[in-house]
Amino acid sequence: METCIIKSPLGCTKIVGDADGISQVTVLNSEEKVTDIIPVVLEDCVMQLQEYFEGFRTQFNLKLNAQGTDFQKRVWEALEKIPYGKTTSYLALSKQLGDVKAIRAVANANGKNPLWIIVPCHRVIGSNGSLTGYAGGLSRKQWLLNHENTTKQLSLF
């Protein structure tokens, strides 16, 4: 496995992967030394994340290799289908997966998503529209949702 650390608007971001795909993207809660030379297998991921943060990318096109249970992988695949700039609720996601009673399991799988931003777990909110749970913290979740909001408010002055 190859690893690199890049700077992002959310803080130092750790990317892990190999020829089989990207297995982890995590925003760290501490300052880390930025990687000087990006491993070849991570270059495309770094570039696509930079394009996302610069506002030029709304979808990722990467080979992914997240490790998890079959159920977690089903949830993560459903997360990838949430359009850029849109949100859904844990309840709606549970219904989409065919079991409204699995809401807690869906929320748990969402919280274990190892591919932050790329697999957009930040787009899942509470049924009442509230920001709920995000492994990276609610301020980062709010930043990502604001970043993806395509209707930017214009200033009057």
Rank of each mutant, 00 (worst) to 15 (best):
G55F: 02
D36T: 14
D99R: 15
K63S: 11
K81P: 03
A107M: 05
E31C: 07
G111L: 01
V46T: 15
V124D: 01
Q50E: 13
E32M: 13
L131R: 00
Q67R: 15
G68S: 04
K33H: 08
F60A: 07
Y90W: 04
I82S: 05
K112T: 00
G85Y: 07
Q48P: 11
V27F: 09
T26H: 13
T58P: 03
C45L: 07
N61W: 02
S30N: 11
Y52G: 06
E31T: 14
R57I: 02
G68T: 08
T58L: 01
G133A: 04
L64C: 07
R123C: 02
V75D: 05
Q48M: 06
V100Q: 11
A109W: 10
E80C: 12
R104K: 09
A78I: 14
Q67G: 04
E51M: 05
F60K: 10
L42N: 10
P83F: 00
I82M: 07
A78D: 14
R57G: 01
F53E: 12
L64W: 03
N110F: 00
C45H: 11
T69N: 12
T132V: 05
R104W: 00
Y90R: 03
S30T: 09
V124T: 05
K86T: 02
V34M: 05
M47Q: 13
E31Q: 14
Q59M: 06
G55A: 03
V40I: 14
V100E: 15
D70T: 13
A92S: 15
S30K: 13
K112W: 01
L97I: 13
K112M: 04
I38K: 04
S94G: 14
C121I: 01
L79Y: 03
